Simulated assay, not measured.
Amino acid sequence: RATAITAMVPSILNASATMKTKIHSLPLLRRMTFASFLIATILLSWNNWAGIQFVHAAATTAAPEKAEGVIQLTAKNFDKSLSDGNAWLIEFYAPWCSHCTRFAPAYEAVAKQLHSEKNNKHKVKVAKIDGAAERALSSRFSVKGFPTFFLVNGWTVREYAGNRSQENLVKFATETYEEVEAMPFLFGPFGPMGQLRSFLMRSGAWVVGLYENLTETRGLKPLIAMAVLCFGGIVVGLIMIVVLGVFMMSKMKQD
């Protein structure tokens, strides 16, 4: 392995030098666009990695809860739970959804049936997510209504679009799922666009929480709190622009 890695080093260095030359040949605006895209990609990757690390750290306190055989998933245990190598049939529901409430007994029967069967093509675990509370997860899956069902097997995700019944869901999870076209990875919940949707939703929730803290805890007036948030956003944006500008100007001087 060490010999193979050593042999790869010159190729990696040549590829890096080629990319550096191509980047330096771009106009300043394109360089800044490329750098912004690179920074955004790194931030999204770090966001996903940090979330997974948090899940691993909290695994002992955030174990999936079972309700009548159906496993309750949240943002804290989602990635950890789905990394067990099994397929997962997941329902996105809302407590106020009457269709979800009426279908709950049938879905519990689906869970008991699938959890007891061992002769399927793959073992299927049955779970549910409160889509109204877990908005970041709902955004990752592009949930547009409740209830919505997905079969997740690794990074392959298929949405169920048939009639809601115990028999149909069990058949979909064990037999007919291959007839349904999988979501494109790019736009799916585990791809970059899904992660971006989740990141934006969490960021929005953080901003709303900060606004509530400023108005309710700190006692600021709504307009003043909004002005503080806008000012903070402008400052962060200016700092990023200055950093990118300094980086690009230094590269231009080196050229």
Score class of each variant (00 low, 15 high):
19 M>E: 10
32 M>W: 00
118 K>S: 07
141 F>A: 13
177 Y>F: 14
178 E>T: 09
122 H>P: 12
201 M>S: 09
159 E>M: 08
220 L>D: 09
210 L>A: 04
127 A>T: 08
193 M>R: 12
52 I>R: 10
254 Q>R: 02
22 K>P: 00
100 C>T: 10
225 A>Y: 14
174 T>P: 11
238 L>I: 09
162 G>T: 02
125 K>C: 03
36 S>I: 04
32 M>E: 08
66 K>M: 07
64 P>T: 11
70 V>C: 12
47 N>C: 02
41 T>A: 15
109 A>H: 07
238 L>N: 11
161 A>N: 09
177 Y>G: 04
37 F>L: 10
144 K>D: 10
177 Y>V: 06
31 R>V: 00
104 A>F: 01
176 T>P: 01
5 I>F: 12
45 S>H: 11
37 F>P: 00
177 Y>E: 13
43 L>T: 06
77 N>S: 04
11 S>A: 07
68 E>Y: 01
150 F>M: 05
39 I>H: 15
114 L>K: 15
166 Q>R: 08
120 N>H: 09
39 I>F: 12
20 K>A: 01
134 E>Y: 13
96 W>R: 01
232 G>H: 05
67 A>K: 15
43 L>Q: 09
109 A>M: 14
198 S>K: 15
164 R>M: 14
180 V>R: 05
184 P>H: 12
68 E>V: 00
188 G>T: 14
4 A>K: 01
48 N>P: 03
103 F>H: 10
25 S>V: 03
167 E>N: 04
149 F>S: 00
160 Y>V: 03
196 L>W: 07
57 A>G: 05
138 S>R: 00
82 L>S: 01
54 F>N: 11
216 E>N: 06
242 V>Q: 05
131 G>P: 11
202 R>W: 00
195 Q>G: 09
36 S>N: 04
151 L>I: 14
84 D>W: 15
243 V>N: 00
205 A>F: 02
105 P>W: 10
76 K>R: 10
229 L>F: 01
147 P>Q: 08
245 G>M: 02
193 M>Q: 10
156 T>G: 02
222 P>Q: 13
155 W>K: 15
217 T>G: 03
122 H>L: 11
131 G>I: 15
123 K>N: 03
219 G>F: 15
1 R>K: 05
9 V>G: 08
59 A>Q: 05
208 V>T: 07
200 L>P: 03
6 T>R: 13
219 G>R: 08
224 I>D: 06
244 L>Q: 04
175 E>D: 10
195 Q>I: 11
75 A>I: 13
101 T>L: 04
222 P>N: 14
70 V>M: 14
40 A>W: 02
105 P>Y: 07
19 M>T: 13
10 P>N: 03
52 I>P: 00
235 V>Q: 02
138 S>P: 03
225 A>P: 03
